[in-house]
Computed example of a mutant assay.
Amino acid sequence: MADVAAKAGVSRALVSIVFRDQPGAGQETRDRVLRVADEIGYRPDNAARLLARGRSRALGVMFTVRQTFHADLIEGIYAEAERHGYDVLLSATAQGRGEVKAVEALLSHRCEAMILLCSDSAPEGLETLGQRTVAVSVGRRMSGSPVDFVHSAEGKGVRQAMDYLVELGHRDIVHVDGGRGPGSAERRRAYRAAMRRHGLESEIRVIPGNHTEESGIDAGRLLMAERDAGRPLPTAVLAANDRCAMGLLMAFGRAGVEVPGEVSVVGYDDSHLSHLMPVGLTTVRQDAVLMAEHAVRFAVQRLDDKGLEPQEAVIEPKLVVRDTTRAPRGM
């Protein structure tokens, strides 16, 4: 700032006024100061200025690499954070980089609050984090933790999908589950409950999986091997999420199985990739924008009032019917 002031022929205080966009400098002076700053490559260090006041005004977001729905959430988080005057810093979990390391990286950069996308942390881990800093868990709910929660009504979304499949005439409906992933237990329970409610208890079948394309491919190969051994294919599959559903579509396509002619496939999330494929995926939409807005608001509200009781937002899901589902053959 002293260099800018000297070259522009003004005081350092006036340079500060210009960069803080405060009254006290004429337009000609402002233009000259900004031009000189650009010439010498000066940029104000807003982070340092905020830290000097004891604030970073940065929200840390932990996400998982390759989870397409997380990209949709992050896009919404950026927009909402900007409306509240906050920056966003990202830290990813990946193979060899767990949640602890991802979160500690954000804390080391002095993020004021953490937004955790589909955390796999144990309850005690979330509780410890909630005691250290402001934290919001998106996609995973844990009762008793001192953190805020944003998630969709998982059971309701699965019921919508299952009711739709049964109305089409499907009876042999398999669920490829999400293992220990966020929301998976709720979706698994809702699938079983829906099958029982429709009188299909004897047809219940859950294939272990996870929230990746690989798990869908593995499940598809298993069903193909069973078909080759004489067991008929199910007429419909409810996948753990969109990525798993995409893996199923890949496996079925390679084996020459027509979707939805022979097997209907339903995903979960309505990530942006679900409608960019050659065949649009029928899926259950989680409203990423609304979830992101709630997560940022919860974080900002708790930063303003640390005494708030833990908050919870349950977002309504919606079945989105596209091209991967139809009535079974012969119906």
Rank of each mutant, 00 (worst) to 15 (best):
Y42K: 08
R43N: 04
D45A: 01
A52V: 01
A58S: 12
M62C: 04
M62L: 13
V65N: 06
V65Q: 13
H70T: 04
D72N: 09
L73P: 07
I74G: 00
I74W: 01
G76W: 00
A79F: 02
A81V: 09
R83N: 10
G85T: 01
G85E: 00
G85Y: 04
L90G: 03
S91M: 06
A94T: 05
Q95P: 10
V100W: 04
V100L: 03
K101F: 06
A102K: 07
E104V: 06
E104Y: 09
A105S: 14
L106I: 08
L106K: 10
L106N: 06
C111E: 11
E112M: 10
E112Y: 02
A113Q: 13
M114P: 13
M114V: 13
L116Y: 12
L116I: 11
L117I: 02
C118G: 14
S119C: 01
S119D: 05
D120V: 04
S121P: 09
P123H: 01
G125E: 14
L126T: 08
L126S: 05
E127R: 13
L129Q: 13
R132A: 00
T133I: 12
A135H: 08
A135D: 06
V136C: 01
S137E: 03
G139I: 03
G144A: 02
F149M: 10
S152N: 06
E154C: 00
K156W: 02
M162Y: 07
L165S: 09
L165I: 11
V166W: 09
L168E: 06
H170I: 01
D172I: 08
D172N: 14
I173H: 09
I173L: 01
R180L: 09
G183C: 02
